[in-house]
Design a protein around this nucleic acid. Structure first.
Lengths: 158, 158
DNA sequence: CTAAATAGTCAATTAGATTGACAATAATTA
DNA sequence: TAATTATTGTCAATCTAATTGACTATTTAG
C-alpha cells in the first residue's frame, strides 16, 4: 500500500482531494512562472464571478461563501495588485462595481491555457471518451451528494 | 449554464473541488450528529497516520505537510479532546509516541461507516463498474499531474 | 568524546477569516 | 410625501490556525 492508494473507504475522497490540490498546485506554479505569483486559488473564483459583467462586493461574498468583510479585504488586495478595479455602481449609489483590469483579464486567459494543457495531458493518456466519462461521473457524484439543505459550494477543506 | 456545470476548461477542476468539499462536508455533518463535532477534516488524516502503530509528532507533521509546531498544536488539541494520547517513545528518549484513544478509534470507525454509505449511495446510481472506473481514472489523473519535483500532498486549497 | 542532527516545546508573529458597529443610500409602506 | 426598514460597504477588534525563530534534551556520527 502506498500513499497514492489508500485503503478502503477513504480512497475515493482522498483521490478527489489529491486530484484537486494537485491541479491547483500545478496551475499556480505555472501562473507564478508567468508573473502571477500574487494570486491564490480563491482569487480565480472571484475573477470568474466578475468576468462577464462585474459584480458588487456582496455578490462576490455570496459567490465565495464568505462574509462581505472578508470579500472586501480580498477585493482591496486584488485592487492594490492591479487585477481588479472598483467603480461607483451605475445603478446603486451605495454599491461599487468590481471589474477586471487588463492584468486581471491576462491572468484569466493564462489560467484557461494552463487548464487546457493540464486536461489535454490527461486526455492524451486516457482518451477523450474516458475523459468525458470522468466528468460525467463527477457531475453525478456531486449531484448525488448535495441536496437542498446542503447547497454546493467550493469552500476550503482542512 | 448553472453553477454546477461551469464552462470550458475550468470544469474538471471545479468538479473535483466540489466533489471533495461536498463529501467532506457531508461526512462532518454526520460525524457531528454522532457527537464528533470537534474534529476537522485534517484530524481525520492525522488519525489515519497514527492508527496502525502510532507516530511521532515529526512523522505527523511530515504526513500532513505542516510544520512540527503546527502539528504539535493540533496534537495538543486532540489530546485535550480525548481523541489521542502522548506517551514517551519506547525507543527514543527525545520523542513521544502519539496513539488513538478509544474515542479516537470510535471516530475512525464512524468515519469508515459514513464513507461507505456515501460511496454506496453513489455506486447504487452509477453501478460498481462505473465506480471503479472513476477511481481508476482519478488514480491516473493524480499520477499524470504529479511528478518528482511536485510530490503529492493533500493540502488545503484556497 | 565531541560535534552535528533530531524531537519536541515556548514565544512571537502572520494571514485570513470572523463578529459587531456604523454611515450612506435605497426600497417599502403608512 | 414622510417615516421606517433593509442593504451596501467600511472600520475596528477579535479569533483561528498556521508560520518563523529560539531553545533544551537526547541521539547519532565522526
Amino acid at each position: 500500500m502506498t500513499t497514492n492508494q489508500p485503503s478502503g473507504s477513504y480512497e475515493l475522497t482522498v483521490l478527489l482531494g489529491l486530484s484537486f490540490s494537485a491541479i491547483t498546485d500545478d496551475l499556480h506554479r505555472q501562473l507564478a512562472k508567468k508573473g502571477f505569483d500574487d494570486v491564490r486559488p480563491v482569487h480565480g473564483f472571484l475573477f470568474q464571478r466578475i468576468a462577464v459583467k462585474g459584480a458588487t462586493g456582496n455578490e462576490i461574498a455570496e459567490h465565495l461563501g464568505v462574509t462581505k468583510q472578508a470579500a472586501s479585504q480580498m477585493i482591496e488586495y486584488l485592487e492594490q495588485h492591479d487585477y481588479i478595479e472598483r467603480k461607483p455602481h451605475p445603478l446603486d449609489g451605495r454599491g461599487k462595481l468590481v471589474t477586471l483590469t487588463e492584468r486581471g483579464w491576462s491572468c484569466i486567459r493564462n489560467t484557461e491555457e494552463i487548464f487546457i494543457s493540464i486536461e489535454q495531458r490527461y486526455a492524451a493518456i486516457v482518451g477523450e471518451e474516458r475523459m468525458n466519462m470522468l466528468k460525467a461521473d463527477l457531475r453525478r457524484l456531486v449531484h448525488t451528494i448535495s441536496d437542498d439543505s446542503n447547497p454546493l459550494r467550493l469552500r476550503p477543506v482542512w
